[in-house]
């Protein structure tokens, strides 16, 4: 928990957060918490306590207000994860179309259990419906949609990621 240093939110993120605040009534700071956490997570891959403290400081809200938001929403990662996040939906429409197989295929292929991470890939817990049921089975890789999955498609998606530097 104690990272014994201080996180300075990069100035370009501060600018974005301040711009976001303009959407809300004057003086309302909390509404920018979710946006700020998204920005910081994008920069750092996951959210540490020092990040939470820095958001609280920037927005002049209580640390607990930020912590509670970070802990409540499923997209915020509070533990170290790999570079690419893979989210496989296993809710009913996907399940009826073989999402269990897709998930085990990925587990084997990436050699990680669901919910766990390697340096490169984080196979997020079985996800709830991601609103692409007509393209079941589906997954998101870094929040991009991939639908009508087959093993071949998955091979290609993973190969493309690995080819990136």
């Amino acid at each position: 928990m104690n990272d014994n240093n201080f996180y300075n939110i990069p100035s370009e993120i501060c600018v974005k957060i301040n711009k976001w605040l303009l959407k809300f009534p004057h003086g309302e700071k909390k509404p920018a918490i979710i946006f700020a956490l998204h920005q910081i997570q994008k920069e750092n891959k996951y959210i540490k306590t020092i990040h939470i403290d820095s958001v609280a400081r920037l927005l002049d809200v209580k640390k607990i207000d930020v912590y509670e938001v970070a802990a409540f929403y499923s997209m915020f990662e509070l533990e170290k994860i790999g570079k690419h996040t893979i989210s496989v939906c296993t809710n009913v429409s996907c399940m009826l179309n073989g999402s269990d197989e897709i998930l085990s295929y990925l587990e084997k292929k990436l050699n990680i259990k669901v919910g766990k991470s390697s340096d490169k890939f984080f196979l997020k817990d079985e996800r709830e419906c991601l609103a692409a049921c007509a393209g079941a089975p589906m997954m998101q890789v870094n929040h991009k949609y991939y639908e009508n999955l087959t093993k071949d498609k998955i091979d290609k998606i993973i190969r493309d990621i690995e080819d990136e530097k």
Binding site: A131, C133, G135
Partner: peptide, 10 residues
């Protein structure tokens, strides 16, 4: 849009 099975709004 999060109701399982629903993808119309997207």
């Amino acid at each position: 849009e999060s109701e399982p099975g629903t993808c119309k709004d997207r």
